[in-house]
Design a protein around this nucleic acid. Structure first.
Lengths: 201, 201
DNA sequence: AGAGAATGTAAGCGGTGCATACATGAGAGG
DNA sequence: CCTCTCATGTATGCACCGCTTACATTCTCT
């Protein structure tokens, strides 16, 4: 671990990540810029390139942090959701996270990025496991290996459609109601869906 | 309608939209730039600003076109889907559209944009109606006014997760299988979902 | 025909990502 | 303790970007 001097920063990598997070939180609509990060870290415009080969690498690193925080946020909403209502709480937490950290969420998902980035792959795999386990616990009669994808996609889609203003996201309550209703509608409509499936044959 | 001369283009607005579409199709990862659009249209760098107050306006106009094309694409996949398999075909078409026109799809959804833009609101309202009608037709026992949201969100989420490399999108067949399986899993799991809902009380 | 509005251009500001060349100083080997 | 090396910082410069302001051209309308 190098020491901090007037010339050498000490831990510029961490400082860049912190600066990037701050900038994303402060302006949820502006794109993250290397130069702004450097300014915020009190360092020359090109210094961050010593730690991140390009802008994409920095964004990926920030995104990886975001995945971990999202996972924690979901667990905090409910450690072991089982009933539809508890599942809906977690779904609301997911969308809430997207709306509370729009720029971070977009960096995590909406930015064209290198899908081979190891940090990102590992972090999303963790979310995948979480969703699968939750499905296994909450819907014992179903196959978690096929059901986890539509469940994640549903919640993820709700998040994006709110983020993009397709649904009313004016107040937290409106969002919670919307997400909860939409999520629970699947359970409510389950008998009708089963019937529709049966009618095909 | 103004005439085309050496100085005056004639219909620069349409030319800009066409150029923008071409650029988005050619490079699915690069951001759309006003100057590139101007170059492609064979016009000075600032000329497009006569027709679009800022970049956001141009992107919104292109996005609105995209919504219409997406709607046509879905209808082309199946005019009146009823059975789960037919619904799955439409879902696959939705994701296919996203993957075939990644930059356009991102412009439509992943770009922070003015939600008050009239063209966008009208275009998305059309999709909303389409999904609602489809749900009404295909799942007669359910309430279309509450079920259309999770359905759209599910398919939309699948599109984004594929677009972002969270699911395997290496071949068209892999995508079709994935989407189809995920979508049909809802019907397959419907009895288990109904049972989970019933167990809550 | 002349006036005014519409639509084009030119020039310039401050911002961006990034490559290249140079400066500094921390830590290792003698 | 002294020097050498190299990781880590800086300076400079290029090409691009969105957008503003001022100016040129031409369409349209009376």
């Amino acid at each position: 671990m190098p020491q901090a001097t007037a010339y050498h920063h000490g831990d510029l990598r961490a400082a860049c990540l912190r600066a990037a997070r701050e900038l994303l939180e402060e302006d949820g609509s502006a794109a993250l810029s290397m130069r702004a990060v450097a300014r915020r870290a009190g360092v020359s415009p090109t210094a961050p390139y010593r730690h991140f080969p390009d802008r994409e690498a920095l964004v990926s690193a920030v995104a990886a942090e975001g995945y971990r925080e999202l996972a924690e946020h979901l667990v905090a909403a409910h450690p072991t959701p089982v009933t539809p209502d508890e599942l809906a709480e977690v779904a609301v937490a997911y969308v809430r996270f997207a709306l509370d950290h729009p720029a971070l969420f977009r960096a995590m998902f909406a930015e064209p990025c290198d899908p081979d980035n190891e940090e990102r792959v590992a972090a999303t795999a963790a979310i995948e496991d979480y969703v699968r386990d939750t499905v296994r616990r909450a819907v014992p009669g179903a196959d978690p290996d096929t059901l986890w994808t539509p469940v994640w996609a549903l919640v993820h889609g709700l998040a994006f459609l709110h983020l993009d203003g397709k649904f009313d996201a004016s107040t937290p309550d409106a969002v919670a109601d919307q997400v909860s209703t939409a999520f629970l509608a699947l359970f409510t409509a389950a008998p009708a869906l089963a019937q529709a499936a049966a009618a095909q044959h």
